[in-house]
Amino acid sequence: MKESYDIPNNLQYTSKHEWVKVIDGGNAIVGITDYAQKMLKEVVYVELPSIGKKATKGESCAIAESVKSVSDIYSPISGEIFEINEELENEPDLINKEPYEQGWLFKIRINDKKELDELMNSEEYEKHIEALSKS
């Protein structure tokens, strides 16, 4: 089936379909992309990290479950988690409805801003998922 995906150009992306939005200098909001939520479909449960957790870039720090699947969400950058989206506990499908807005996952204090340079911009990410859907 042919799908189209929303990829805002003001965000940065990982190859594993997380997005990062830098806010107030040293902090960032993290979520999963429209492509990821469409792959998961109907998120029914989200397990978020605890506040204060030190996340390491590339390591699993949250889980999203649909009826049939369990998916790890990897931290796109290293740093300390200082806020989580508590709305997701009762409304996990916010991730499906608004992956880039109400469906955000957590906020993180960035350890090393250089890690941001390793993320993809929207054009690079778009090419990445095009390549995936061809394979």
């Binding site: 479909k41 109907e42 029914v44 649909s66 009826v67 049939k68």
Partner: peptide, 9 residues
């Protein structure tokens, strides 16, 4: 097919 529309619907 595992799903068409989505398992829940």
């Amino acid at each position: 097919p595992i799903w068409y529309d989505g398992i829940i619907s």
